[in-house]
Measured scan of single mutants.
Amino acid sequence: MAAAAAAGAGPEMVRGQVFDVGPRYTNLSYIGEGAYGMVCSAYDNVNKVRVAIKKISPFEHQTYCQRTLREIKILLRFRHENIIGINDIIRAPTIEQMKDVYIVQDLMETDLYKLLKTQHLSNDHICYFLYQILRGLKYIHSANVLHRDLKPSNLLLNTTCDLKICDFGLARVADPDHDHTGFLTEYVATRWYRAPEIMLNSKGYTKSIDIWSVGCILAEMLSNRPIFPGKHYLDQLNHILGILGSPSQEDLNCIINLKARNYLLSLPHKNKVPWNRLFPNADSKALDLLDKMLTFNPHKRIEVEQALAHPYLEQYYDPSDEPIAEAPFKFDMELDDLPKEKLKELIFEETARFQPGYRS
């Protein structure tokens, strides 16, 4: 834990890192770190609560700039109880001085990944967590956004079992017609939660990839272990087919990539493993919904509104309290091709509203 900075004593240090967030945020305490930044909790002297502050230093890398800009653009436009918001952003007053960006968010005690390492969940908890994931996802999908990296560590939890989806750095506007060349190379989302079509096709992607990830998360809540822990690309596919069985001819016809289709045709026939054999203690309604989410063919996979209306979630289902976005989200430009200098300018502009004396 960093010592509390005395008023006016300059930035606090946390594990050798400068955290320049005073005077409003003090009493910093280390939480963890990701690929390009550290997260601390801090005391907000204005709202009198502890908050989470993520320090991001992305400006050396085009990919990190892209992810940072995506996350900020999306989260500043989203407003939903099951999606983490941005409360404040701290950065230098000029673009030349801006080396880091500090993002202030609600402090959540833990995440689903940490929880599943230590606790076996009751059916009631599984049901409530799944409902909140789908409630947040309904809003995301209504904005025409794909999260693309749903996994237990991106689901934040607090002691009252509130759940918030975080990390929109890989999110995209849904565009089933656009052929994202190089899709697989830039697709760094965790393999275990990846839909089979991501490994088999490169053309376009749809909201059904997020539903697949939610199915993987439900299976993990039922058993405290990942359902498809593939060691590499082909191993991942083999794990999936080992449980779902061989795809039907109709399902194979959806695979545009001939090499991928021929690979699947070359494999020995596998039978589907019954879900109640894998999860003998699970609620039968939970397994019915799991089956509809972990469907090989993305066109037959359940959609988020149908999933919310499934009998497993009937005690929570309330369409009048499951809000959607006001308007579909649009990125003005494809960020993939922009140089990091341009992305830095866009991050600077996007964060201006939090600067003292800002006038829109």
Rank of each mutant, 00 (worst) to 15 (best):
T68Y: 00
L265Q: 14
T159L: 13
G32E: 01
D235T: 03
A6M: 12
I86N: 13
E186M: 02
D337C: 01
R15M: 15
A309D: 07
V188E: 08
K340E: 13
A282D: 14
M333T: 08
R79T: 04
A5G: 07
D167Y: 15
L267P: 03
P319L: 11
H180I: 13
I126H: 07
K114E: 13
Y131D: 03
L107N: 08
R67H: 00
L107R: 01
K117Q: 11
N201I: 15
I211H: 13
L115S: 00
Y131K: 02
A352I: 04
V46I: 12
F78M: 06
S320F: 08
Q97K: 13
H269D: 09
L134G: 11
L28G: 08
L130S: 08
R191L: 15
D337T: 05
Y263N: 15
Q236C: 09
M13R: 14
D337L: 06
D175C: 06
L134S: 13
A286G: 01
I324S: 09
K55F: 06
I84S: 02
I347N: 14
L290N: 07
F183I: 15
C127R: 11
H269P: 03
D321W: 07
R277C: 07
I83M: 05
N82P: 10
A4N: 01
G215N: 09
N123K: 15
D283L: 01
I347E: 13
L150P: 11
E314T: 00
P226R: 09
S208P: 07
E33Q: 01
L112R: 01
I126V: 13
G215F: 08
P23H: 14
V51H: 02
L76H: 01
R24M: 11
M221H: 08
A352H: 01
I95K: 07
K48S: 07
G16N: 03
D321E: 13
D210K: 09
D337Q: 07
P274G: 03
S41F: 05
Y131Q: 01
S208M: 09
V14F: 14
P23I: 00
G37L: 03
R24C: 12
A309L: 06
F279E: 05
A52N: 01
N262I: 15
A352G: 04
L244D: 04
K54M: 14
L308H: 02
T68L: 04
D88E: 14
F59P: 02
V14A: 12
R50P: 07
H147G: 11
I95V: 08
I255N: 14
L137F: 02
I243Y: 02
E345Q: 06
S320E: 10
K259T: 05
D162L: 03
L130G: 08
D106F: 00
F183H: 06
K207G: 12
A286C: 00
T68Q: 03
I133C: 05
R70K: 08
Q236W: 05
D44P: 03
L121H: 06
K300G: 11
I133Y: 04
N82R: 13
E305R: 08
G8L: 13
S153A: 06
G22V: 15
N87G: 04
D235H: 08
M333A: 08
Q17W: 01
L267C: 04
P152G: 03
C166K: 10
G357E: 13
Y193W: 08
N87Y: 15
P152K: 08
E197N: 09
Q355M: 12
N144L: 10
F354R: 10
I324P: 00
I84K: 03
E345C: 02
R148C: 12
P298Y: 00
R148G: 13
G230A: 01
D100P: 03
F129G: 05
Y358G: 08
F228D: 00
F168A: 02
C127A: 11
R50K: 13
L278I: 04
V101C: 07
F19Q: 13
E345F: 00
T190F: 05
R77P: 05
I126M: 12
P274I: 02
N154R: 10
Y43S: 07
D44K: 03
H120E: 08
P319A: 07
L313R: 01
Y193K: 11
K270I: 06
L338K: 10
L264Y: 04
M108H: 04
P328K: 07
Q105I: 05
R191I: 06
K270F: 09
Y205I: 04
P176E: 10
L289P: 00
M293H: 08
A286K: 00
L146V: 02
I31Y: 01
I89K: 03
S248M: 08
K117W: 07
G136L: 05
P280F: 12
Y312R: 11
L252E: 08
Y193G: 12
I86T: 00
A2Q: 00
S202N: 12
T118S: 14
A174C: 06
Y205T: 10
R24G: 05
S266N: 10
H310E: 03
R24Y: 04
L237C: 06
P311F: 03
K270W: 07
A52W: 07
L163N: 05
I31R: 01
G10H: 05
P226M: 06
E81P: 08
E322P: 00
Y43F: 13
G32A: 04
L338F: 02
G22H: 07
H120D: 05
N144T: 13
A7L: 14
L346E: 13
P196L: 13
I211Q: 12
N45E: 10
S122L: 09
G182A: 12
I243P: 05
S320C: 06
S213C: 14
E220K: 14
N257S: 14
K73Y: 11
I53H: 00
L289T: 07
L130F: 05
P11Y: 04
L278T: 10
Q119W: 03
I347G: 09
H310M: 05
N123T: 05
F78N: 12
L200H: 08
R225V: 06
G85P: 06
A189P: 07
K270E: 07
T68S: 15
T160V: 11
K259N: 14
L116G: 09
P176Q: 15
E186G: 07
F348T: 10
R148T: 07
G136H: 00
T63C: 13
Q66F: 02
A143T: 08
L156I: 05
M38N: 09
N47K: 15
L267T: 02
D210M: 12
L115D: 03
E12G: 12
G357N: 01
D124E: 14
F296M: 07
R359P: 11
G215W: 03
G37T: 11
V273R: 01
F331T: 00
K164L: 10
V273M: 09
H61I: 01
N297P: 01
L28F: 11
D106C: 00
V21G: 07
E326M: 06
N47W: 12
H61C: 03
G34Y: 01
Q97Y: 08
Y139P: 08
S223K: 13
P11Q: 15
E60H: 00
G10I: 11
L294P: 06
G37Q: 08
C254S: 15
K270N: 15
K342Y: 06
L218Q: 14
H120R: 12
T26V: 12
I53E: 05
S223I: 05
L346H: 11
P152I: 01
T185L: 08
Y102D: 12
L241A: 08
D162T: 00
F228M: 01
D337Y: 15
L115P: 03
A35E: 10
G169I: 00
A260E: 06
T160Y: 07
E33D: 14
D44H: 06
C216T: 08
K164H: 09
R79I: 15
M13T: 11
R148I: 13
L137I: 05
T110V: 11
E60A: 14
A219D: 07
E345L: 05
K231H: 00
P229V: 06
E109D: 15
L137M: 09
P339R: 12
R301S: 14
Q249N: 02
H310Q: 13
R67E: 12
S41C: 12
I347L: 12
L287V: 02
H299C: 11
G245C: 15
K342H: 02
K207M: 15
Y128Q: 10
K342W: 02
Q105A: 12
D321G: 06
V18C: 02
N47D: 14
G169N: 00
L258E: 09
